[in-house]
Design a protein around this nucleic acid. Structure first.
Lengths: 417, 417
DNA sequence: TAATTTAATTTGACGTCCAAAATAATGTTG
DNA sequence: CAACATTATTTTGGACGTCAAATTAAATTA
C-alpha cells in the first residue's frame, strides 16, 4: 500500500517528473516540458521559477540559430544546472578501483584509475583506503567532500546494498568486505553500493527510457556473467540488493566448478574463463584463475572458432547452451518483455547464438517465449560508470531536489513594527 | 515514471487507502482509521461522509458490549457496505468449473460446481458455455448480470491475461482457448483471467498483508506445481500475465517428460503424477495421465514412504531435489525475502524437505540464501476461489470506488431565475 | 506601424489537506 | 445529580498546488 497523499506529495511528484524529463531528454523550452509532463503552462511556470531560484535549473542564453520561418515569441530553453551538485562513481575491480566525477547534468568532469591489489587486501582496510583514494581524487579536482552530494559504488559479485557490504566478490578473497560505512564515516557523503550488472541496467535503461516499461533482463557477458533486472521500469534490487545473480544460477547440478566455489553455476560455462576452460579441454573441476582473462586471449579464441577450430566452436556452443537454459528458466519465472545482451562477450554472439536460441526453445513452453524480444546493445567499456552516475543523479532528483529547498526554514523574518 | 500528480490523485489515493484498510482489517472506528492511514480526523470525516453517501460504506449500529471502564464519547465503527457490489469468481479445472458469488465485503453468498468435460471441449464453445453457466448461476441467486461488477477467472496453466486467453492448460487439449471475450460479450461484465497460482498468492498475501512488503514466492504443490510471485507487495503478472510458471521451469535438460509435452520441467519430478511415476519405477518418458491423480493414491504413497518403502522415499526425495534446485535458481535471480509452500503437496513436506533444503544449499551462493525465510501455509481447498474474489474486490476498490461517484454528472442543475 | 503568432506569466477559482476550535456523547466525582 | 473529564467526531478557516482564462512578452509578417 502506498501511503497517504497530500499537497506535499503533489509538489514533490511534479517537480520530480520535470527533472526527470529534463534528465532524459535534455534541455527544452517550457512549452515542451508542459507537453512531456502533462502539466499546464501555469504549473510549469511555477515549478521552473522555483527550481531556478533554488539553482537546480537554469535558462539557457540561446545562441541557437532558430528556425526563421517560425513566428511568435521565441522559446527559452531550460536545463538542469550542472553546478547544482556533484556525484562520484566508484567501480571496484579485481585489480583496482576506478573513479569518476560528474556534475548534475551527468557530464564526466574527471576520471582516475587507482591500481590496488584487491584480491589479497585486508578486508578491514579496504574501505578506508578507498575513502582516501576518493579524498585525493577530489583534492586533485579542487573539491572538498562537502561539494559532493552522493557516491555510487559498483562491484562485481554479491553486493548487499542494505548493509553496504560486499558479501562475496571475485575481487576479494575475503567475504563481507565493508565498503559503505567506512567511506561515509571518512567523508560524510551519502553512499550506496550496488552490483555492477544492476548499474549496467541503469545505464541501458536511461539511454532508451521509453522502451523499458515492463520487465527487461540485461545480461552481461565477459569476465563473469551478470544480470540487471528491470521490473516495471525500475531496477530490481531484491531483498538486500543482491538480486539477479544470474551468473551463479545453477545450470547443471554437480557441474563445472565456478569462481564462487560452487559447482554447476551458469558462469562456469559461459564466462570468459569457463569458455576458455572448455576450449582447452581442461577438466570441469579445474580451478578458475583468480584474475581476469586477458582480452587478447579471448580474441584469439574467437578467431580460432571462426576458423572452424572444433574445440573452440564446441566451447562457445556450450556457453550458448548454458545461457540459453538460464534464460529459459528466467522466462518461465518472469515472462519478461525483453532480454538485452551486453558486455564484451557479445563480440562472440554469432558463435553463441544458435545454441542459445535452441536451448530457450527446448527449455520453455512456447506460449511463454513467443513474445520475448532478444537484443544486444553496443559494447561500451564505461557502461558501469555511466550507469552508476545516472543512478546517483536520479536519486538526487527524487530525494533532494524534488523536495525543494531546506524545509522549515523561512526565507525571511516578517518585520512586525 | 509515474505521471503527474494533482488534487484528483490525492483524493483517489486517500479514498483508496481508507478502503484498503477496512478491507484488510475489518470494521473499525474513524479514529482508528485515522491512525492506520495517517490521515487527520478532519480528512477521515470528509472521506467517510462521502463514501457513506455513495453507499460504499456504512456505519455499524453497535450492539457491541464496549469496555465500560472507557470514558468519553463512544466510537462508531464504519465498514464496507456489503451491498455496494457483487463479484463472481470462476475456477477452471480439468473436470469442470467452479463458481462463487461474493458481496463487497468478501462474504461468499453462493457457490456452485458445474461438471464439464473440459479436456476435449471445443475451444470455440468453451467461453459461451461458461458464460451460460454464470448466467444460470446468477439467476438462481436472483441476480442479473448488471448486479455483478466484476468476474475473476482462474485457470491452471499459462494464462495470457492481456488477451484473456488460456494459452496452454492441462484442462484443455486445445491451445489458446478464449475465455474473457465470450464472457464479457455475453454478460457485459468486466472480466479478468489469471493463473491459479497467482490467485493463491493473492489470497495468502491478503490474509497476512503486513508481511508481504518485499518479494515473496508462493509455491503451490499438488496435481501440478505453480507459483505466484509477490514483488514489492503486489502480485507480479509478467509481460502478458503468464509469469511464474515455476512448474515448467526446466530442471534438467532432456529430463523426464511433462504434461506440457516438454522434457525436464520441474513439475515432471515434483507434481503428484511425477512423484507417482518415480515411485512406480516407470521410465521418465511415460506420458503423464491427462486427469488429476486421485488424492487417495497420493495418500497411500505418502503412507508407504512413511513406512520406509524405499521407492516411495526415493520418489519424494527426487521431488524435493527438483523443487530445491528450482528455488535455488529463483533465489539467485530474485533474492526473495520469503518463500511460502502451499497446496496439498505440503502434506508430504516432511518427506520432501531434507532434499529440498540440501538442494538449495548446493545450488546457490550462501550470501544469497542466508536471509530467505521458508514457510508453509495451512492447506485450504478454497485458496484459489478466495484469492480470486479478493483480487476482484481490490480491483473494484482502486478502480471504481476510489474515484467516487459517476464523474462529470452534476448532482443538480442550478436554477437561473 | 499594426496585426499575427507563439511563449510565458498572472489571476482567480477550486479542491483537498490540516490544525484548531467546536460540538457530541459518554463516564466520573463530589 | 450537576459540573467536570474524557474521548470521538465535525466544523471552520487557512494553506497550497493545480488549472482555465486572461494578460503580457517578444518575435515575424503585412
Amino acid at each position: 500500500m502506498r501511503g497517504k497523499a497530500d499537497i506535499d506529495l503533489v509538489r514533490r511528484q511534479n517537480r520530480h517528473i520535470v527533472l526527470e524529463v529534463l534528465r532524459t531528454h535534455g534541455p527544452m523550452p517550457r512549452v515542451e516540458l508542459g507537453r512531456k509532463t502533462g502539466l499546464s503552462p501555469a504549473s510549469i511556470t511555477s515549478i521552473t521559477t522555483q527550481l531556478i531560484q533554488e539553482q537546480a535549473m537554469l535558462e539557457l542564453a540561446e545562441v541557437t540559430t532558430r528556425d526563421p520561418t517560425r513566428r511568435g515569441r521565441p522559446t527559452v530553453r531550460v536545463d538542469l544546472n550542472p553546478k547544482a551538485a556533484n556525484v562520484v562513481a566508484m567501480k571496484i575491480s579485481i585489480d583496482g578501483i576506478e573513479l569518476a566525477l560528474a556534475d548534475f547534468s551527468g557530464n564526466v568532469i574527471a576520471r582516475k584509475t587507482v591500481p590496488l591489489a584487491t584480491y589479497n587486501f585486508d578486508p578491514h582496510k579496504f574501505g578506508d583506503v578507498a575513502a582516501q583514494s576518493i579524498s585525493n581524487f577530489l583534492s586533485q579536482n579542487d573539491l572538498e567532500p562537502k561539494d559532493v552530494a552522493r557516491i555510487g559504488i559498483a562491484t562485481q559479485g554479491v553486493a548487499d546494498s542494505r548493509e553496504g557490504v560486499v558479501a562475496w566478490s571475485p575481487a576479494f578473497k575475503a567475504r563481507n568486505v565493508a565498503v559503505v560505512a567506512p567511506i561515509q564515516n571518512a567523508l560524510g557523503i551519502p553512499s550506496t553500493l550496488a552490483n555492477d550488472a544492476n548499474m549496467i541496467a541503469e545505464g541501458v535503461m536511461a539511454n532508451d527510457h521509453r522502451r523499458y516499461v515492463g520487465t527487461t533482463a540485461v545480461v552481461y557477458m565477459g569476465y563473469g556473467v551478470g544480470m540487471g533486472l528491470v521490473i516495471e521500469g525500475k531496477v530490481y534490487h531484491g531483498s538486500n540488493g543482491a538480486a539477479a545473480e544470474f551468473g551463479h544460477m545453477n545450470h547443471i547440478p554437480q557441474g563445472a566448478i565456478c569462481r564462487c566455489g560452487r559447482s554447476g553455476c551458469l558462469e562456469a560455462y559461459a564466462a570468459d574463463y569457463g569458455i576458455l576452460r572448455s576450449a582447452e579441454d581442461l577438466p570441469d573441476d579445474t580451478m578458475p584463475p583468480s584474475s581476469a582473462v586477458n582480452p587478447a586471449v579471448m580474441a584469439a579464441l574467437e578467431a580460432a572458432a571462426r576458423r572452424g577450430d572444433a574445440k573452440a566452436v564446441a566451447a562457445y556452443q556450450k556457453a550458448g547452451r548454458a545461457i540459453g537454459f538460464g534464460l529459459a528458466r528466467l522466462i518461465a519465472l518472469l515472462n519478461p518483455d525483453r532480454i538485452v545482451l551486453a558486455g564484451p562477450g557479445t563480440r562472440a554472439l554469432d558463435l553463441i547464438e544458435p545454441t542459445l536460441r535452441a536451448a530457450i526453445e527446448e527449455g520453455v513452453v512456447d506460449a511463454l517465449r513467443r513474445d520475448v524480444k532478444i537484443e544486444t546493445v553496443p559494447i561500451n567499456k564505461d557502461m558501469i560508470i555511466t550507469g552508476t552516475i545516472g543512478a546517483a543523479l536520479r536519486h538526487l532528483d527524487s530525494e533532494i531536489f524534488a523536495f525543494g529547498p531546506k524545509l522549515n526554514q523561512p526565507e525571511y523574518q516578517e518585520l512586525t513594527p
